[in-house]
């Protein structure tokens, strides 16, 4: 029989909770649920340390625990391969779409954050460090 584990919001980052206040690079404050693709792009443009990149979801596999998934991304023009293991409710920001997770129902339950289903082929916002001079 399936065993459902109780939600453990304390173990999750607090800033995905609906209503959380996010400060953009220009100082503007927005709620997490109101963020747009342009907010990430513009913040990265004026950041001295970070630049924005696109990460395409290539695979989504089961993780080591029942609530975890391993997501393989292809990052940037060089298609660098990056794998991250996250909880199924962990939201990623998809270009032109907004917040998406592997289990949007659980994300909405835990964070009250509206989410789409994260799928192979989705292009997520990611960051790289600017080259140090």
């Amino acid at each position: 029989p399936a065993v459902s584990s109780p939600p453990s919001p304390v173990a999750l980052p607090p800033f995905f909770m609906r209503g959380s206040i996010i400060q953009l690079a220009d100082g503007e404050l927005k709620r997490v649920e109101d963020l747009k693709t342009e907010d990430f792009i513009q913040s990265a443009e004026i950041s001295s340390e970070l630049k924005i990149d696109s990460s395409t979801v290539e695979r989504i596999d089961s993780g080591q625990s029942p609530n975890a998934v391993v997501i393989q991304f292809s990052v940037g023009e060089l298609k660098a391969q990056v794998c991250v293991e996250v909880l199924v409710e962990y939201p990623f920001f998809v270009f032109g779409q907004g917040w998406s997770s592997c289990c949007p129902d659980r994300t909405t339950q835990l964070f009250e954050l509206s989410c789409a289903k994260l799928c192979v082929g989705d292009v997520c916002v990611s960051l790289t460090l600017r080259s140090l001079r």
Binding site: F15, F16, Q23, G76, V84, S126
Partner: peptide, 25 residues
């Protein structure tokens, strides 16, 4: 008097879960 509770403010980049490998310009 009750001090208003300060609302936490999170930086925008904390929402992006990983830093991809640095690429040369």
């Amino acid at each position: 008097n009750v001090e208003p509770r300060s609302v936490p403010v999170f930086p925008w980049h904390s929402l992006v879960p990983f830093l991809a490998p640095t690429q040369s310009d």
